[in-house]
Design a protein around this nucleic acid. Structure first.
Lengths: 236, 236
DNA sequence: CGGTGTCTGTTCGCTACCGAACACAGGCAT
DNA sequence: ATGCCTGTGTTCGGTAGCGAACAGACACCG
């Protein structure tokens, strides 16, 4: 597991997969930014000004609370991108993009992305495939949110977060997790307590450490493995 | 509300939105087929051979049952298309496509779609927008499956089905509805009984008739209106 | 050093839904 | 008619999660 200052702290897998020339051309259009926890880089109904390719950072895409609390649909780290509607020529989003983990990301303007897509067929192909992955994973999330118990969903979230943040330690409160999973904070506390008693994780005032990744996989729902498999199949 | 043999029984809205010349060129690549209830026109993991543009027919896209019953993610009628991954250059699907309502559809081979996309920028643009709609509606479905009670979700399903089938009468059993909504049959029976007692619908051995559309809208969750609004905003 | 806000733990009664099982009615075939 | 299959209605005990409310524990700050 790479440490916080490992070399691939600045790598985004979508961009890394591109041919050298395309990648360099695209990176010159990008700006390197440091995302901060709690920062909102996209709001439902708003025009998308920039797209982000997270490197060490972690971003939640959340359905806006109509009558319900709110619910994370996708978790985006260095394997993905924020601002996908632009790839399809659509300038608005219906999801809130909330930074969950601080870290670097590559930022590009909407126009920059348009130019890049026109110039690099490889980029276009890669992002199209990524969209396809998101649709499959989204379908999976529907079932996950409907059928799986809080404890399993929490374990899944922690695993995905660890993968994307490239660290076995991160900061997130029960309250925040509850908002992601669409349950009460009490429900998270209960599930987290169980995971801690099973020596799978340790946490203390928002600082979560993953102790036993294998055990956590066993506690998580299959959605974790399935989601990873979908990605690897199309972009691995 | 158009009757079962109304003129737009053979119309697909995605195709209808195209400029005359593009539409005619595309329709020559299409074959008109009659889909039968229960027919499966796509299986998880399989290569997509054909895409379908339903006209009077109705198709459910369902997440495969891993440990759970199974759950409808999208309902596609004459406003949409089946086989969307191909638009993104991906040849496999992870969803089961099950025909819920018999009726006509336009069928095109995978190669035909590829050619059509290359020749008609308008088609490409339209389908890209449609994909964007699906992603937004999918995010909505995650929340709907998680938060809303069976009765509201059933009402929503009936409304969507009515819109897409262009008929206030169709055939679907409680058992089937249970599989769509991811609940037990008993749960559907209970909810359907309530709707029937409220004089919103009538049903008898699988034949459902919608009596009071306005009342049904009130009984349904907001996801109905939201999903329609998303579509209209981008493709209306 | 005490005060204040954040984070976590626990309790209460309540509801929607679950799994399983059984009863019954309409329609079709023999 | 008899029997069978499909579709619907009902019941039972059990559980995961809900809303609300409160209590303790830690951390920072003046």
């Amino acid at each position: 597991m790479p440490s916080a200052n490992s070399p691939n702290r600045f790598v985004n897998r979508l961009l890394a997969a591109l041919p050298e020339t395309d990648r360099l051309a695209i990176l010159t259009r990008c700006e390197s930014v440091e995302l901060q926890v709690g920062e909102v880089i996209g709001e439902p109904g708003e025009r998308i000004r920039d797209v982000y390719f997270p490197a060490g950072s972690l971003v939640s895409l959340i359905t806006p609370p109509d009558d319900h609390p709110g619910l994370e649909v996708w978790l985006v780290g260095n394997e993905g991108m924020v601002g996908t509607p632009l790839v399809l020529g659509v300038e608005v989003t219906r999801l809130r993009a909330l930074v969950q983990g601080a870290g670097p990301a590559w930022r590009m303007t909407a126009e920059g992305l348009g130019d890049a897509l026109r110039q690099s067929a490889a980029l276009h192909r890669t992002l199209d495939r990524y969209l396809s992955v998101l649709m499959s994973q989204g379908a999976q999330m529907v079932a996950c949110a409907r059928f799986h118990v809080v404890e399993a969903r929490l374990a899944r979230w922690l695993l995905m977060s660890q993968d994307r943040a490239h660290s076995d330690h991160f900061h997130v409160t029960h309250e925040t997790l509850a908002a992601m999973l669409g349950v009460r904070r009490v429900g998270v506390t209960k599930a987290a307590t169980a995971l801690q008693q099973g020596e799978l994780i340790r946490y203390r005032r928002g600082d979560v450490t993953i102790l036993d990744r294998t055990g956590l996989r066993a506690a998580a729902c299959d959605c974790y493995g399935t989601a990873e498999a979908i990605y690897e199949q199309l972009l691995g």
